[in-house]
Amino acid sequence: MSDDMIHHGDSHQEYVTVMIGPQLFGLPISRVQDVFMPDTITRVPLASQEIAGVLNLRGRIVTAVDMRRRLSLPQVEGKAHRHAVGVEQAGEAYGLIIDSVGEVLNLAVDRLEPNPVNLDRRWASVSAGVYRLDGQLLVILDIDRVLAFGEEAAAA
């Protein structure tokens, strides 16, 4: 049994990994409510561009955030197989629309490295750091910062 598999209180953190575009991202599992396949998303006219719309998740209205838009990634045609990660902030439910969901990783907190200084501004503003995994990098998303776009829009 490697150390990674054992939960060491504060020293380790579990992440739900997701693919958005070509990149692997990690979301702290403590903030993830559920993962679901968004059914029909109702677009909301005049909303900020990151907002994909609103949807009904088991009787609750969830605001869907298009993570590709949030990260300035190109849109894909045919969103049929897209997934959503349900998170909550200040009592409101959000669904982060991502491409696909991967495994859950348990990673040591001290292995988290700060964002490279030349990281894209927009990405840097939502990223809490980077893990070097075998063969690829895992960018950790700070959910509160990911959801901190409405204010910008309102101020603009």
Partner: peptide, 23 residues
């Protein structure tokens, strides 16, 4: 949602009988 409240054109949203959300 707070993210949508700045849009003056809508006062709220609701879920219709067919399960879809409308503004």
């Amino acid at each position: 949602s707070k993210k949508l409240r700045n849009i003056g054109m809508f006062s709220g949203n609701t879920i219709l009988g067919d399960g879809s959300v409308i503004m």
